[in-house]
Structure formats: structure tokens, C-alpha cells
Design a protein around this nucleic acid. Structure first.
Length: 976
RNA sequence: GCCCCCGUAGCCCAACCGGCAGAGGCAGGCCCCUUAAAAGGGUCCGAGUGUGGGUUCGAACCCCACCGGGGGCACCA
């Protein structure tokens, strides 16, 4: 992230204190710096924030906290990229820090760790730009951000810190890969199982290879060893697959679907992306689609993130329907093939008038006819002499078409006819079969039945190609034309056997599906938009795969005892990149050039043999998929995670609970990728018995963004926001008027504000209080530098309540507080607790401000504040502004840190009033206030209200139809 | 086009389960302190909840429609 973790600039502010006008012991920025640095040293020296595990090497001191509830809170760890940290970044870190400190004081055993996500493209690109090894730059960036976090005063247990690039960490990333590689998804059991169990069942004859996994078509007992390995490999959760991938020549690597923007460019770097077939590692996340979807309901996450994951998984139900091809007597070579289509609208089957295959559909070649029949519609041929030429030309054109064209909204539908027809199973109608790129390879079966009457895309295609339309849903009388996708009774849908006519959609779907099943022509099915996860990258800066290839070019797992497979040091770590638009180029991973590494002699049980290493590396997401588990003990070199410690920190709290991290805070931008991948890995680890929790993150909170004003001059260029002056509501830069805009903080808008500047000017505590006071954690908010002074003033007042500004000594008195003060104190405690518990730190700050203001006016300079009020005030400030709180606590005579001191508890006695004011409404309008005993019942309330003369005036001469009296709240007279 | 979230004072934000719209901060006014300014302290000032309907004794809160802002998905059959 940033390299600007400067020591605070004490000089800048120290000058003012020499001026005599300021009392010598005022809480100035200079004093804040001193206090903060001193306490940060002491926390580190004393290991104040060390959290014990139940067992293992980090278990020292666990006995003292064994009876506490556990609380695991963490942030999405930073990616230290070297491009500067701004005030938006710490928002979440401070939220978890305040929560962590509060929960610790309130009696929890709190785990609050931090680590660094450091493999991946940005670090590599930064290194290439600066001509340094990625490890050098990455480690420098980590050191910088580590210093910055320390300067903010966060309470991470630094013994649990690690980076994903540490060999001691990625060893276990590779280990998890081996576990995934070493398992398969048993669809009947709905979970992953070790691959050895599959082999055992195949050998025993109790299981057949899954459909599509046995290319030979021969039974398992007849296969030789290599053929058997191919069958087994095709079952694995991590598998090699040749498929069209997103090849990005500009980056020299392939990208996952998730890393490609909707306009067909790379999310990183904005280079064009092309589809081309390559053999790559895939992760079978689709096997978990149903569980990933269903378990969302068991998570305490925001609706929007859940919704985004639901959309991404994209479950839809419908039917698979077989259309047979190769009608007798037709001059084509497509004998006895069946096209499987997927549809969510089997109720419209009678309206299908043609069939479409995706250009990459495997049946296209086999189905293409030798010649056009006479009289073929010229629109159907693509201008070619034969179907084969037309199809080949179309496929080439489609593969070249960048995704940029594809997303063009109103692009005309294109396609060509294969020269064959397929038979609609429900009415025997012969439908022409087209290939067209509006049908996607990866979704459903890659083939559709086209129903132009009820689908706008099919309608558009039918219009362009002159295809017929059969309506099967009755549109409303005033319908203008085109495809009708709304509801309506079914029409034109009957054969000798069934009729759907008059049925509603749901009934029609059930009826026709049942008919299809009975006739062996289809079945009800569910599909997902989610695709398997492309897991290979042709980059240097990533985890090497723990995989080698043997003489059959089949993958072999590197034994666990040989982990980690270290990333070799190389001179040239940049990938071979190509011209942005060179779609024909092929990936060339940097590791493939390290020839003394790529070839290796190993004894994997068959004696020493030469093997070829996998030269791809894992994607950036791998390291962040499981880092929360490693915080439990990053130095455990025997296990990924100790099961007892995992059960303690992450296990289910009660039967049926998903378990996981108790509070996970991070940006909305990871709503799909990181969170979905991590959930997937966690579920695999759960299935294999390595973790006791079903989900990684029980509760997720997305912190808001911080935006700031930006300013443009008359040419539209951004000017430095910090130098813009406001006069009479208008804005000027160097005397010239500028326009005010609003946007995310950053370099490009020239509106960057760094925490270092703020800490330099006010100290970390002021910065912390400011960020926490601007709203609930989830709320996005504007940054306003000039408002920071308000938080500074609050801390100064708190300081003055406790410390004499001229002598620097605590001025708390051992006297009894008055009742007003006690009420104020306990109301504050209740409010602060509420704010802390609900991550509405602004509420906590507001309550503390009220109490401080009360104390300031109730106890002047000559009347010290009672100790029994000053101390709880200091304790309540501690989670938000820990340094000043520690300092005040210490000046109040305590030698130990307050970090483990119990948080104040409100006394109910001072929360309830003897009497309460309730509003009296007449027809819902507030007309008077009456004071009644706090426990007055409805009748007493009504009596008191009627006795009020203003109320009597409103009621005089009118009929009271009804009286609503809510004890403690109000009385409402409903009059006629 | 579809889906999700959000509209309260000049600005940022509160308001428990539907029960008196205001806690806090910024900005602004006035006063004190000061030779003056800054810093500091004190005090004052504020809207009726985007719009229109509905439910209710009672709506910022629940329902419907619309407007505005933010985000996601998008030829997904």
C-alpha cells in the first residue's frame, strides 16, 4: 500500500507550545505524538495484545482467559502495492480495532490479527516498472504499511502476522491445493471425498465413472493404468481442462471470468481479452453451487452481498430437452445425433421454430451438412457455397470477435444454417438448426430451442432470418407485437397425447416436463451461471503448483513431504507479453524459461524418474482463500491448522451454526470473487474433515467508502484539492474560480488525503475519533479535513476534565457525584455500549461528547470531577482513542494498561427516571406534555392527560371516540 | 432492461419493536479570554423526513407508484 509511513512531524506543531499563551500541559498535537509513540512502544514491549490459543505454542496464558467467550475479528488484509495509502483505507481497520478493544475490555478472548496479501499481478507489474525483484518491492511495501498500522495504534497480535509470499505460508496453500486435487465431489453424498475412495468404488464395481469422464467408452476393468488415471483425473476437484479461456496478450496471461470486465478487457490494466482454447487448471466450484447458494441464508451478511453472490451463482430451473437430428432420407451425415437444449420455458415448447447451437458447441462439426438444399434462403448461408464453409467462416469470425463487439447492445443477430433440421419431440415439427453467437457455450448445454413468440432475442433472430413465429402464450388484447414474455394462458399447444392450452405457466411447465420424461425426451434440471474457476496464471509472482508431469503428460502430485515447492529466483520474472490485440499469440510463463527448475528428478514411488514441473502459478486469490485459518498459528509447521484451536476460534457455536470468523470487515469490491472462492475452499476443507466450521465468515460487514471533493479548472483539469479556497460558497484555486466535484479519494482526482498528514497534524487518536464519528461503519461518507478539528477539541476537553493543564497532574477528586451526573454517566455507558456493539461508533462518540460537555459545565476549573465519573469516562474513550485513554488512566494512578480492564457497566438504577414526561396527542397531533410517575398505567396516564388544561381545551365540546395510552410514551385522544 | 441499497437541518449524521423528529460534529451568529489574531471556552441558530397515494388512533419507519443518488448483473435461454 503506502511507503509514506513517516514518523509524525512533531516539529510542525511543537512551536505553538512555546508561545506561553497555551498552558504547558494542554493536549496539543505535539503532546499527542509523544503520548502515542510511548504507548505504542509499551504495548509492544509488554505484549499487551497477545491472544492465547487453547493449545499449542501460543497457548501461554490461556488459563486466565479460558472462561471468556471467544471473539475472532479481522479485516480483509491489505495488498501492499506501493501506490500510497489514503484516509479511506484505515476506516475498516479502525472499526475492527475499536470493536476488538471493546470486546476485550468487556470480557471476551479477542483474536484480532493482520496479514498481507502479497502475490499477484500488481506487485509484479510494480516490480517490472521499477526494475526490482517483486520480493524486494513487496517486502518494502509491507514494512511501510506495517509501520503505518502501528502508528494508528491498532491492537493486532503481531505474533500472528504473515504474508502470503512467506514459504511457511504458501507451503500450506500448496498443501490445500493437493487436498483439492486429491478429492472428487460425490454428487450423491453432496460433498467432497478423497479420490482414493472413488478408485476403490470403481475397482469394486459399485460405481461407474461419471458421465463425460471416460473417453474410451470401455468399462473400468478393461482400462489400462494410463486410461484409468485419465478417468480419475477427470473427477478431481482440481483438474486440467482444455477450454476457451480469457487470453490477455497485453498482460501475457489468462484471466478468470471474474477478472474480465463486461466490455471484454482485463480488470487490471484494461487490456483487450480474447477467447482461445488452452489447457489450464480448473477448480470445480460448480459442484458446490447449490451449497454456496443455500448456505447464504445462514450467514449474517448484508442483503446486497448475498444478492450479488446469488446473481453470480445464477441458479435457474427448467428442463433439458432432446431434439433428434438426422431425419431419414435427408442427404446429410448427421446420423442419429441428439441436440440437448436447456430452457427455463418448457411450457413454450410447441412454439419452438428453430434450434441454435453456440459456435463452439462440440456437435457443430458432426452436424454440418455437405451441401445446401436447393432454394435455400440466401440469408441463411452467410454467402458461402456449402454449409461447411459457412460454418467454418462463422466460427472463425465469432472467435475473433472481441467481447467489445459482443456486448454491443443492439448488435444485429448473426448466424448461419447448418443445413440440417432437428425434430421437436412434442409435435414432430422439423426445425432448422443454426449456429449463432448469441448462444453462449458455457451456459446450460450451449444449445437452445428458439421460441420467437416468447423470447425477445429469438424474435430478433427470427426477424433477421425470416423464420416463423408460433405464439404459445396469449398476449393481452392491447399488445403491440414482438415477443410476449409476460403471463397469459397457453395457446396452440396440443398434440394427440396432451394439451397445455389454457394452463398457466407453472402448470404447463409441470405438465409438459412430465410428458417429456415419460417419452424419454427430457428431464427437469437446474443450471447455474457459475462456471468452474480458472486457476492457472502464466505469471512469475504466484504460488507454484505442487504438481509435476510424467512421461504420459499426466499430472502427479508432489508429495506433502516435499512442500513447499519454492518459487525459484530468476533474472527475468516478467511474462512474455504481446501486442494488446495479438489474439493469435500463446502464453509463455516465465517459469518455463527456468530450464534447470522445470525438469526435475524425483522418486515418487516408482524409483527416480524425470518429471516436468508445472510452470503456471496460482492466481492471486489462492493466498486470500484461507488466510483466516492461518492466523490461528502462522508458524505451525506440522499442520495447516490445529483442529482444537480451529474448533475454538471458528467452530460452530451451537448445533446447526455455520461457525466462522465472528466479524469480518472489508470492502464491497470483494463481494463476489474473494468471498465466493474462500467459501468454496472452506467447504472442501470441511468435507475432508480439516475444519469444523461450514463457513469461513459468520458475519460480514462492508465498510463504507470515503469520498472527497475534487475541483476542476475552466479547462476541466483537476487542481490540487488541498489548495482550493472557499469564499462565499464559491471555490478558487490560485485566485481563479474552479468547479467542485465529488468522487473517490485518489491521485487521479488530486484529492488525496493521507492518514500520515492527519496524524502529523493532530495525532492518531484525533484521526481515529474523527473517522469513527462520521457515521456507522457501513456508511460511505465524505472526507472533510476542516472538520477533524472537532474531534481534536473533544479530546482536549476530555483531557482537561481529567488533567490540570498547568501542572499536568490528574485532578479527579474522591467525592460523590451528584445525581444529575450519575444519570448522565450511566446513560452514556448504555449508549456507548450500544454504539460499540452495533458498529455505530458515531453514537458512542456522541454519548461521550455529551458526558464530557456535562462534566465541563457541571465541574469548573475549581471543582475537580469525581473519580468515580472520570475513570469510566476514560475507559469508555479507550476503544476509540486508546493512547490518550491509557495516558489519562496512568495519570489517574493506575500502573497497568487499561486494555484488559473491565468496560463500565450501566447501573439500571440511574437509567430509569422517577417521573417521565409523556406527550398528549389529540388526533395524533401533540398538544401538551404531562409529567407522570414512570410506572403510571394507562388509566393514570389518561387521567393525568385529561387534567391538563390545554388538553381539556382541545377536548371541550367534542366526543372522545377512543383513547390510546401507551405507558411511558404518550396518550392519544381520538375525537370526532 | 433486471436486481439490491439509500434519500431527515447549509453539510455529515441520530431517532429502540410504528409512539413527542434531534444526540453529536462541521459550518454560521453572538459573548468571554486576548493589544490583536490564532487556539481555547461559553452560548445561540436551525429541518418536519425526495414526491404522491394507502394502511393505522398514530408513519421518517409498513405497503404501492414515481423522482433522485449509489452499486451489481446483463444475448444466462
Amino acid at each position: 500500500m503506502s511507503q509514506t509511513a513517516d514518523r509524525p512531524d512533531v516539529e510542525q506543531t511543537a512551536g505553538g507550545a512555546a508561545d506561553g499563551a497555551v498552558p504547558p500541559h494542554r493536549y496539543t498535537p505535539a503532546l499527542a505524538q509523544q503520548i502515542e509513540l510511548a504507548w505504542q512502544d509499551r504495548w509492544e514491549r509488554e505484549g499487551t495484545f497477545h491472544t492465547p490459543n487453547p493449545t499449542g505454542r501460543l497457548s501461554e496464558g490461556f488459563d486466565e482467559v479460558a472462561d471468556r467467550p471467544k471473539f475472532f475479528v479481522m479485516d480483509m488484509f491489505p495488498y501492499p502495492s506501493g501506490t500510497g495509502l489514503h484516509v479511506g483505507h484505515p476506516l475498516g481497520y479502525l472499526g475492527t480495532d475499536a470493536t476488538s478493544r471493546f470486546r476485550r475490555m468487556d470480557g471476551d478472548n479477542v483474536l484480532h490479527p493482520m496479514g498481507y496479501d502479497a502475490f499477484g499481478l500488481p506487485a509484479e507489474q510494480y516490480a517490472v516498472q521499477t526494475g526490482q525483484h517483486p520480493r524486494t518491492t513487496t517486502e518494502a511495501n509491507i514494512a511501510a504499511i506495517r509501520g503505518q498500522l502501528r502508528r494508528l495504534g491498532v491492537d493486532h497480535d503481531e505474533r500472528r502476522t504473515f504474508a502470503t509470499i512467506d514459504p511457511g505460508y504458501y507451503r500450506w496453500t500448496q498443501w490445500i491445493f493437493l487436498k483439492i486435487f486429491g478429492s472428487w465431489f460425490d454428487a450423491d453424498a453432496g460433498r467432497a471425498r478423497p479420490i482414493a475412495e472413488l478408485v476403490a468404488e470403481l475397482d469394486a464395481g459399485t460405481r461407474e465413472p461419471a458421465p463425460g469422464t471416460n473417453e474410451t467408452g470401455r468399462p473400468w476393468p478393461e482400462l489400462d493404468d494410463v486410461e484409468r488415471r485419465r478417468v480419475v483425473d477427470a473427477h478431481r476437484l482440481a483438474y486440467l481442462h482444455q477450454a476457451p479461456v480469457n487470453w490477455c496478450p497485453g498482460l501475457g496471461t489468462v484471466l478468470s471470468n471474474e477478472e474480465v470486465t463486461p466490455d471484454g478487457r482485463s480488470e487490471r490494466g484494461n487490456f483487450p481479452v480474447f477467447r482461445r482454447p488452452l489447457t489450464q487448471w480448473m477448480m470445480r466450484i460448480t459442484a458446490y453451487a447449490e451449497r454456496l447458494l443455500a448456505d447464504l441464508d445462514r450467514l449474517d451478511w448484508s442483503d446486497s452481498v448475498k444478492q450479488m453472490q446469488r446473481n453470480w451463482i445464477g441458479r435457474s430451473t427448467g428442463a433439458r430437452i432432446g431434439f433428434s437430428v438426422g431425419v431419414a432420407g435427408r442427404a446429410d451425415d448427421a446420423a442419429d445425433q441428439t441436440i440437448e437444449v436447456f430452457t427455463t420455458r418448457p411450457d413454450t415448447l410447441f412454439g419452438a421454430t428453430y434450434v441454435v447451437l453456440a459456435p463452439e458447441h462440440p456437435l457443430v462439426d458432426a452436424l454440418t451438412a455437405g451441401s445446401w438444399p436447393s432454394g435455400v434462403d440466401p440469408r441463411w448461408t452467410g454467402g458461402e457455397a456449402t454449409p461447411r464453409e459457412a460454418v467454418t467462416a462463422y466460427q472463425r469470425q465469432a472467435s475473433r470477435r472481441s467481447e467489445l463487439d459482443r456486448q454491443n447492445e443492439n448488435r444485429e443477430k448473426t448466424g448461419v444454417w447448418l443445413g440440417v433440421t432437428a425434430v421437436n419431440p412434442v409435435n414432430g415439427r422439423e426445425l432448422p438448426v443454426f449456429v449463432a453467437d448469441y448462444v453462449l457455450t458455457g451456459y446450460g448445454t450451449g444449445a437452445i430451442m428458439a421460441v420467437p413468440g416468447e423470447d425477445t432475442r429469438d424474435w430478433d433472430f427470427a426477424e433477421a432470418f425470416g423464420l416463423p413465429v408460433v405464439r404459445t402464450v396469449q398476449p393481452p388484447a392491447d399488445f403491440a407485437g414482438g415477443a410476449w414474455t409476460g403471463a397469459g394462458p397457453v395457446i396452440n399447444s396440443a398434440n394427440d397425447d396432451i394439451s397445455l392450452n389454457g394452463l398457466d405457466r407453472a402448470t404447463a411447465i409441470a405438465t409438459v416436463t412430465e410428458w417429456l420424461v415419460r417419452h424419454g425426451s427430457g428431464e427437469a434440471t437446474t443450471t447455474y451461471k457459475l462456471r468452474d474457476w480458472l486457476f492457472s496464471r502464466q505469471r512469475y509472482w504466484g504460488e507454484p503448483f505442487p504438481v509435476v508431469y510424467d512421461e504420459h503428460d499426466l499430472p502427479v502430485a508432489v508429495p506433502e513431504s516435499m512442500l513447499p515447492v519454492l518459487l525459484p529466483d530468476v533474472d527475468d520474472y516478467s511474462p512474455k507479453t504481446f501486442a494488446d490485440d495479438d489474439a493469435e499469440s500463446a502464453p509463455e510463463p516465465p517459469l518455463s524459461r527456468v530450464t534447470d527448475w522445470t525438469t526435475v528428478e524425483l522418486d515418487l514411488g516408482e524409483g527416480p524418474k524425470k518429471y516436468r514441473r508445472e510452470t503456471n502459478t496460482m492466481p492471486n486469490w489462492a493466498g486470500s482463500c484461507w488466510y483466516y485459518l492461518r492466523y490461528i498459528d502462522p508458524d505451525d509447521d506440522r499442520r495447516m491448522v490445529d483442529p482444537d484451536n480451529e474448533r475454538y476460534w471458528l467452530g460452530p457455536r451451537e448445533p446447526g451454526d455455520v461457525g466462522g470468523v465472528d466479524l469480518y470487515v472489508g470492502g464491497m469490491e470483494h463481494a463476489v470473487l474473494h468471498l465466493l472462492y474462500a467459501r468454496f475452499w472452506h467447504k472442501v476443507l470441511f468435507d475432508l474433515g480439516y475444519v469444523s466450521s461450514e463457513e469461513p465468515f459468520r458475519r460480514l460487514v462492508n465498510q463504507g467508502y470515503i469520498s472527497a471533493y475534487a475541483y476542476t479548472d475552466e479547462r476541466g483539469f483537476y487542481v490540487p484539492a488541498a489548495e482550493v479556497e472557499e469564499r462565499d460558497g464559491r471555490f478558487f484555486f490560485q485566485g481563479r474560480p474552479v468547479n467542485r466535484e465529488y468522487g473517490k479519494i485518489g491521485k487521479s482526482l488530486k484529492n488525496m488525503v493521507t492518514p500520515d498528514e492527519m496524524i502529523g497534524a493532530y495525532g492518531a487518536d484525533t484521526f481515529r475519533v474523527y473517522e469513527m464519528s462520521t457515521g456507522p461503519l457501513e456508511q460511505s461518507r465524505p472526507w472533510e479535513t476542516k472538520a477533524v478539528v472537532g474531534s481534536q477539541r473533544l479530546l482536549q476537553r476530555i483531557w482537561r476534565v481529567v488533567v490540570d493543564e498547568s501542572s499536568g497532574v490528574a485532578r479527579a477528586a474522591d467525592v460523590e457525584p451528584d445525581e444529575d451526573t450519575l444519570r448522565a454517566l450511566h446513560r452514556t455507558i448504555a449508549g456507548v455500549r450500544d454504539g460499540m456493539a452495533t458498529l455505530r461508533f458515531n453514537i458512542a462518540v456522541a454519548r461521550i461528547t455529551e458526558l464530557t460537555n456535562h462534566l465541563t459545565s457541571a465541574y469548573g476549573a475549581d471543582r475537580p470531577v469525581p473519580r468515580s465519573v472520570a475513570e469510566p469516562l476514560v475507559l469508555m474513550v479507550a476503544p476509540l482513542a486508546p493512547h490518550i485513554a491509557e495516558e489519562l488512566w496512568s495519570r489517574l494512578g493506575h500502573s497497568r494498561s487499561l486494555a484488559w480492564h473491565p468496560f463500565p457497566v450501566a447501573d439500571e438504577r440511574w437509567l430509569v427516571e422517577d417521573t417521565v414526561q409523556v406527550a398528549v396527542q389529540v388526533n395524533g397531533k401533540v398538544r401538551a406534555q404531562v409529567t407522570v410517575p414512570a410506572d403510571a398505567d394507562a388509566a393514570a396516564l389518561e387521567a393525568a392527560a385529561r387534567a391538563d388544561e390545554k388538553v381539556a381545551g382541545h377536548l371541550a365540546g367534542r366526543t372522545v371516540r377512543r383513547v390510546v395510552a401507551v405507558p411511558g410514551r404518550l396518550v392519544n385522544f381520538v375525537v370526532g
